[in-house]
Amino acid sequence: MDLNYSTYGSGPAIVFIHSGGVDSRVWLELVPLLARTHRVVTFDARGLGQSPAPQEPLNPVDDLLGLLDLLKLNRVTLVGHSIGGELATNFTLSYPGRVDRLILIAPSLTGFAFSDTYMNWMGEVNSLAPDIGKMTQFSLDGPIYRTVMASNYRDFFIEMHTQYFTRVFTEWRSFDLIWPHPPAIERLEDIAVPALFVYGDLDWSDMNDLAAEFKRLPSIAFAKLEGADHMFPLTHAGELASHIHSFLNDNP
Rank of each mutant, 00 (worst) to 15 (best):
L109S: 05
E226D: 12
H245Y: 05
G200W: 05
P57V: 02
I144Q: 11
L104W: 01
F43D: 05
G142I: 00
I17Q: 04
Y153S: 04
P194N: 00
E239R: 10
M1S: 13
Y164D: 07
A53D: 09
G200L: 09
T162L: 15
G20L: 09
N251Q: 01
T147I: 14
R216P: 02
A113I: 04
F214P: 08
P57E: 02
T170V: 10
W121S: 15
A150D: 14
P12S: 14
W204S: 11
L67P: 05
S205E: 15
E171F: 07
E29G: 04
S6C: 15
I185G: 01
L109E: 04
G66C: 03
R39D: 01
P218V: 09
F222I: 08
P52N: 07
W27Q: 04
G20V: 05
W172H: 11
A106S: 15
E56Q: 14
D209L: 10
V125K: 06
L188A: 04
L73R: 02
E56P: 02
S115A: 09
L30G: 03
P32D: 08
V40G: 03
E159R: 15
A150T: 13
A192K: 12
I17Y: 01
V79S: 03
F222Y: 11
L3K: 06
G238I: 08
T92E: 00
G20W: 02
S10G: 12
L93H: 05
D100M: 04
V41H: 00
G97W: 01
A150L: 12
S24F: 00
F91P: 06
